[in-house]
């Protein structure tokens, strides 16, 4: 237990992280899902979600963050997001052509409106969040390895 406490940053940073990481994650999901109604969208929401995980990793050390989201899972989710976008685009062929907005438009200003756009936003957000987290992991692990070599 004592050994585990040594990893990561100080107690203040850890406490603040424990309180803020959840709200940041939730805010990312909000920005992601309301991209077609208010400013925001898939890219921004994905980056905010990635920032929540990055904050966890900086405060608690890499083992704790990997317990929440392993590296292989990040790569897999990234590929899943890309394939989801492509599959949604391909589903447009049911109505005639590629990337067709084939679901009903719905009422403006509602969460379930604008047809296929929320689904596109979710796919892009998942993809961007996992991808940026994977890039961050790669950079951090490179640094740790290089410090070990010295």
């Amino acid at each position: 237990m004592n050994n585990e406490k040594d990893k990561g940053m100080s107690l203040i940073v850890k406490t603040v992280t424990r309180l803020t990481a959840g709200p940041i994650f939730l805010y990312g999901i909000y920005i992601l899902s309301h991209g077609h109604v208010s400013p925001g969208g898939g890219f921004v929401g994905g980056v905010i979600i990635a920032l929540a995980f990055i904050q966890l990793m900086l405060a608690y050390g890499k083992e704790s963050a990997f317990k929440k989201l392993p590296r292989a899972a990040a790569s897999f989710i990234e590929n899943l997001g890309a394939l989801m976008f492509l599959a949604l685009a391909g589903l447009g062929f049911t109505g005639g052509y590629f990337l067709l907005n084939f679901i009903g438009k719905g009422e403006p200003f509602r969460l379930f409106s604008a047809g296929i756009m929320p689904l596109y936003n979710i796919a892009i957000g998942v993809k961007v969040g996992a991808g940026l987290f994977a890039i961050f992991i790669a950079l951090i692990l490179l640094r740790i390895n290089r410090e070990d070599d010295r």
Binding site: S38, F109, A114
Partner: peptide, 10 residues
């Protein structure tokens, strides 16, 4: 055309 109120997303 799109039903989205955020025109950038549209």
């Amino acid at each position: 055309d799109t039903g989205a109120t955020n025109l950038v997303s549209a």
